[in-house]
Design a protein around this nucleic acid. Structure first.
Length: 295
DNA sequence: GTACTTGTTGAACG
DNA sequence: TCGTTCAACAAGTA
């Protein structure tokens, strides 16, 4: 489930590999018969016409969105929960693959496969495969102005300079009645934090996810602010949680899963104090925490 | 077979 | 008009 650190990792890799490449070909594959549902925001032919021939200026990230700068327009990719991007280049019998996003279970490395929804081909003959098991992800082509418009309504980037303690305080003051976890995950205010990093940040801060924002002490707000930044940075350092090394013989792997303290560890022992990790539903999502370490 | 999971969207609600 | 809540989306996994 790519959140900010996973998307950031993909973006850094893709920027290295695809910067200055030109899109030669684009195909939508595995369309479901009898369904309107499409991964792109324009009629297929129009979408194709608009991106073929475009050169990639750079690849960057905003929130959980992957952003291909095509000079006069932007290609946005959202992986949602199970999206995956795989860049593959074969030259002189050696094939180079980088992948990011949802890990594929098992060892079926065939590309394209039954989960592939779109394929880009670049002028260096490399391919970029957009795979998505649950088909929630999307590709959008936006004109510069459209994107700039959308930017305005997006939340603060937690790793940017804008995310000061003051700014965090402002955000929280507008979410007074909500729980701290729900506040952290509200993309309108803070961009890029999903279920995993919300739970992990709150563990590091020692604050229970179910606490109401308006009852948090100044000191606790400060700790949460710090924790969010530290957890995200550390996760990026380890290339995210939902990465897998299944494709990369060089050993690039998403290691953060080893450092998860609470997420997905229901009824397991807290790594700090040994008591059992609890799980409840909060706003329709699972929330994990340690009853002893988090107050 | 059923419950559960995920991030965003859009509808319904107050 | 606004913020909040919740079902819907899809399909693999337990």
């Amino acid at each position: 489930m790519p959140e900010l650190p996973e998307v950031e990792t993909i973006v850094r890799d893709l920027n290295k590999q695809t910067k200055n490449l030109r899109i030669k070909k684009f195909e939508i594959v595995n369309k479901l018969p009898g369904r309107v549902h499409s991964p792109v925001n324009l009629p297929e032919n129009l979408f194709k016409r608009k991106i073929i021939g475009k050169k990639i200026k750079k690849v960057s990230r905003r929130a959980k969105i992957i952003l291909f700068d095509l000079h006069d327009s932007y290609l946005l990719i959202h992986l949602k929960m199970t999206g995956q991007l795989v860049y593959k280049r074969s030259a002189a019998g050696v094939s180079k693959v980088i992948a990011g996003g949802h890990p594929i279970i098992g060892v079926d490395l065939k590309l394209p496969n039954k989960f592939t929804r779109a394929i880009f081909t670049f002028n260096n003959k490399a391919n970029l495969f957009f795979n998505d098991v649950r088909r929630f992800g999307w590709l959008k082509l936006l004109e510069r102005g459209e994107w700039q418009n959308q930017l305005k309504s997006m939340g603060t980037e937690p790793l940017s300079r804008d995310f000061t303690l003051n700014r965090f305080g402002e955000i929280l003051s507008r979410k007074g009645g909500a729980t701290i976890k729900q506040a952290l995950m509200d993309q309108k205010y803070l961009a890029g934090i999903g279920n995993i990093y919300a739970d992990e940040s709150l563990f590091l801060a020692g604050v229970k996810p179910s606490r109401r924002v308006k009852f948090l002490k100044k000191e606790e707000i400060k700790r949460v602010h710090q924790a969010v930044i530290r957890v995200l940075k550390k996760a990026i350092k380890y290339r995210g949680t939902s990465f897998s090394d299944y494709l990369d013989p060089a050993g690039n792997r998403g290691n953060f899963i080893k450092y998860l303290k609470v997420y997905g560890r229901k009824d397991e022992k807290c790594k700090r104090c040994g008591s059992l990790i609890k799980k409840i539903k909060l706003g329709g999502r699972g929330a994990h925490w340690c009853g002893k370490c988090q107050k």
